[in-house]
Each structure stands twice: as structure tokens, then as C-alpha cells.
Amino acid sequence: MPTDVHQHIWPPAFVDLLRARTTPPYLDGWTLHLTGEPPYPVDPADHDVAARTRLAAADGLDLALVSLSSPLGIEYLPPAEAAPLLAAFHDGALALPAPFGVWAAACLSAPEPDPDALARELRRGCVGLQLPATALLDAAGWTHCAPLLDVLTHHDRPLFIHPGAAPPTPGAPPWWPALVPYLHQMHASWFAFRAFGRARHPRLRVCFAALAGLAPLHGERLAARGGGRGEVDFDAFYETSSYGTRAVDALVRAVGIDVVVTGSDRPYASPVIPDLGADAAVHALRTANPARLLHGRTAADGRRLEGSTP
């Protein structure tokens, strides 16, 4: 089943709620206003369901997973503001036609997140949970989100870590948020997962957007600084959005091909199939590896021993 694990579509009711807001995040017509980024002109076709369905078919996909775009910052709005936006997203996304599936989202601004709300969305059909990397940058973040991650483990569903909101950077060029704070967040969340997350959640499957900001390539420096190289964690995956052959090849050399999955970040980037020299590699990235991310390894696939470290 060829799969893209990383896309975004805004359902109509969700768009209407963004337009009704007067503080970020909000839409003025089709111009998106965020706290830390310049106004962004949105192409209406990017969120036209019929057009996106045709595009997914043209990409040869059997499954395209859509999620709330965490840079919007909705997860950190006050609960009374976040709730209707999250409901509109979940309701609209779960109503999308094939081949679309949905990552759930959660409000993180309350003193404690609501595990029951997540369990409800999983029962309704969400494949797992997306969290912003900004929620998982340190031990405190992993502790705060632990009730949600316990729900994922109980239901045998994966976690998708996506860049969160970017801080304001006056005078920065338009590409700055995607290249600097987004990748810093992914980089830090990967190291925080190694240091704090995996020990607390040994059976959790997790996928890092944007190749985890290329954090695994720092393994030699980690070892030199006393962090150890560790074993490859076959339940930690890396999706490829915005990267091509050179970056994917480098990551494969660091962690192996079995944990790299195809993601595009449509509509913000187009899919790229890296040239890794064999049709089997494309099958692994598009089909075999996403299936393990979503459904786990079979009993015969015992490449990661229980208790091994990332």
C-alpha cells in the first residue's frame, strides 16, 4: 500500500473558524496570519478535497495521512479556543474520502492533557497522534505528554512529531521558519526522545518529520561526547518531507533503510522519491516501512529486541 504519512488539508468548517478569529492563527480571506511568520497566501486549491483526491491518485497513493499543521499553534491555544478548532479538524478530516487517513491532534495548554479525548479520536478512526516538536523538547515536555503517549501504547498506535510554531524573527527571510526553528525543534525533540522519551515509553512507535532535522547524523559527535552510539531503534521512524536523495541516503547510512518512510508535506512541498539505486528501496520507503510504523512489527520481525535503546 503506497503511503504518504505527511499531508495537510483544511476542512471547510475548520477554514470558517480560522476566518472567524481576529488573533493568530487566523485567515483573512485566504491569507494566513501566524505569530512567528510573515503573512502567508494560501492557494484555495491546496484545500480543495476533489483536487487533492485526484492529486493523491496521480501520486499513486493508497493512503495519504493528513494532520493538523502544528505551526498554526492551535494545540497551545486556551482550551476554550482550541476545542472547536480541533473538533472541526477531526470531524472534517475523518470525513475525507479515500485515500486519506488522519492523525489526531490534542490540546496541550491545560495543566494536564485529556487522554480520554485522544482515545475517542482513535476509536473514531485516527491512525495515531501528531504532537508539535515544541511539546517534546525536554524531560518536562515528555512528562507532560505522557498520558497521551500511554493511550497510544495501549491502542498500539504511533506518534508523529511535527514542527511546531516558530518564534518571531524580525527581518528574517520568508524561508527562515522552515529552515531554522522548525529544524532546531526536530533536532532537539529527537535527542530528548533518546534521553527521556524511550525509557518511559519502550513500546511506543514514533515518527519524526523532516528526517528529525538530520539529528541522527550527529551520532559520531554524540559518541565522542559520552552519549554512546546506541542500537538502531526499529520503532523510531523518519519521514522524508522536503528532502531528496543526498539527505535520505545519508540518513539511511546512519540508521538503515528500514526506518525511513515517505512523506511529502503537501501542499507545502511536492513528493520526492529519492534515488537509492533499487526498486526495493522505493518499496521500503513507500510501502513496507509505513506499514510497520502504523501497524507494528510482526512476531517474526524481531530485529529490535525488547529493552534495546535507540
Rank of each mutant, 00 (worst) to 15 (best):
M1W: 11
P2M: 06
H6R: 07
H6Q: 10
Q7H: 11
V15A: 03
V15T: 12
V15M: 05
D16T: 15
D16Y: 11
R19A: 10
A20Q: 11
T22I: 08
L27C: 05
W30E: 06
L32E: 02
H33R: 05
T35N: 10
E37M: 14
P38Y: 01
P38T: 07
Y40N: 07
A45Y: 04
D48C: 06
R52Y: 06
R54N: 10
L61H: 07
L61A: 13
A64N: 08
S67F: 10
S67K: 06
L68W: 02
L68V: 08
S70Y: 06
E75L: 06
L77F: 03
L77N: 05
A80E: 15
A82R: 03
A83T: 15
D91R: 09
A93M: 04
A95F: 13
A98S: 13
P99N: 10
F100W: 11
A105G: 12
P111Q: 04
A117C: 02
L118E: 01
A119W: 03
R120E: 15
L122H: 03
R123Q: 15
R123S: 13
R124A: 15
C126W: 05
Q130R: 08
P132K: 00
L136T: 05
G141N: 09
W142Q: 12
T143P: 09
C145M: 00
P147M: 04
L148D: 00
V151S: 00
V151N: 00
T153H: 10
H154A: 15
H154R: 15
D156W: 01
F160R: 00
I161R: 00
P163G: 00
A165M: 02
P168I: 08
P170R: 05
P170A: 00
P170T: 01
W175M: 14
A178C: 12
V180Y: 04
P181S: 05
L183N: 12
H184N: 11
W190I: 08
A192S: 13
F196S: 14
F196Y: 15
R198T: 08
A199H: 11
A199V: 09
H201I: 07
R203G: 14
R203W: 11
R205Q: 01
R205A: 02
V206K: 00
A212D: 07
V232G: 04
V232C: 11
D233P: 12
D235P: 12
F237G: 05
F237T: 05
E239M: 01
T240W: 04
T240I: 01
S242G: 08
T245I: 08
R246I: 11
A247V: 02
A247Y: 00
V248L: 04
D249A: 15
A250I: 07
A250N: 08
V252G: 03
G256Y: 01
I257E: 11
I257Q: 09
D258S: 13
G263S: 05
G263M: 03
G263H: 03
S264N: 10
D265Y: 09
R266E: 09
Y268P: 03
A269S: 15
P271Y: 01
V272R: 12
I273D: 14
P274G: 02
G277R: 06
A278N: 10
A280W: 14
A284P: 08
L285I: 12
T287K: 06
A288L: 13
A291C: 05
A291F: 07
T298Y: 09
R303D: 09
R304L: 14
L305T: 13
E306G: 13
G307Q: 09
T309W: 15
P310L: 09
